[in-house]
C-alpha cells in the first residue's frame, strides 16, 4: 500500500468523523425557542385569504402581504386612546428595527374593525399620521369578520351616552411571517422595547429554523 493511499484513507476517515460529530451536534441540540413575552407558534398557522381595501380604495388580498414580516393591529379611527397609543408604539418599533436588513424589517398593518366609518379616505389620513409606510386596511364587514375570526380577534360595537358608538376590540398585535402566516401573538400591554426585542428574537429564530 503506497503512502498516498494510506493518507487518503486517513483523510476520508477524518472527514467521516467530522461529519458524524456535526450531525450528532445538530440532532442532540434541538433549537430552543427564544424567551419572549410574545406567544410564538412553532408551526406558523396559515391564514385563509380575505379581500380588503387599502387606503386608496384598491382591493388588497391578505396574500399581498407576502414577502415581508408584518405587525398587524386591529382598531378603529374613532378610538382616542388605545389605538393611537398602539400605533405610535408600532411606528417607533419600526424605527428601532431600521438597522435590520431591509428584507427583515416589518411592514406595519392597521386593520379597522369599524369599516362603516373607516372608509379608505379616513384610513389614509389616519395611518399616515403615525407612519407614512403603514398599511391601512378596511373593507366589507364580512371580510373583516372572517379575518378577525381566524386570528381570534374579538370586537363589538358599544353605544356611547352622547350618541354614536365606540368599539371594544382585541388589543393584541399579530406577527405574520413572510408567507403571510400567523407566527406570533404579542399581547397587551405593549411597549416599544418589548415588541422590538421580541420581533428581533422571533425573526432570528425562524431564520435559523428554515
Amino acid at each position: 500500500m503506497g503512502l498516498q493511499r494510506i493518507l487518503m484513507i486517513i483523510g476520508l476517515a477524518a472527514m467521516a468523523v467530522v461529519a458524524g460529530l456535526w450531525l450528532q451536534l445538530r440532532m442532540s441540540a434541538p433549537a430552543v425557542p427564544p424567551e419572549t413575552n410574545a406567544t410564538l407558534l412553532r408551526t406558523a398557522r396559515p391564514v385563509g385569504d380575505v379581500r380588503l381595501q387599502d387606503t386608496l380604495g384598491n382591493e388588497l388580498s391578505l396574500q399581498q402581504l407576502k414577502g415581508r414580516w408584518s405587525l398587524v393591529f386591529f382598531g378603529f379611527t374613532h378610538c382616542p386612546d388605545v389605538c393611537p397609543t398602539t400605533l405610535a408604539i408600532l411606528s417607533q418599533v419600526a424605527r428601532r428595527l431600521e438597522n435590520l436588513p431591509q428584507a427583515q424589517q416589518p411592514q406595519l398593518v392597521f386593520i379597522t374593525v369599524d369599516p362603516e366609518r373607516d372608509v379608505p379616505e379616513v384610513m389614509k389620513g389616519y395611518v399616515e399620521h403615525f407612519d407614512k409606510n403603514m398599511i391601512g386596511l378596511t373593507g366589507e364587514l364580512s371580510q373583516v369578520e372572517a379575518l378577525a375570526a381566524q386570528l381570534g380577534v374579538a370586537f363589538q360595537k358599544v353605544p356611547l351616552d352622547q350618541g354614536g358608538y365606540s368599539m371594544d376590540h382585541s388589543a393584541a398585535i399579530f406577527m405574520l411571517n413572510p408567507g403571510a402566516e400567523l407566527n406570533a401573538i404579542i399581547s397587551a400591554p405593549h411597549s416599544v422595547e418589548g415588541i422590538a426585542g421580541d420581533y428581533r428574537k422571533i425573526v432570528e429564530f425562524m431564520a435559523e429554523q428554515s
Partner: peptide
C-alpha cells in the same frame, strides 16, 4: 363640545373603554 373621563380597561385581551 364635551370632555369626559374614560378608562381603557383590558378584559381577556379585549380593550374596552368605560366612562
Amino acid at each position: 363640545a364635551a370632555v369626559e373621563f374614560h378608562n381603557s380597561v383590558m378584559e381577556d385581551g379585549v380593550s374596552r373603554m368605560r366612562q
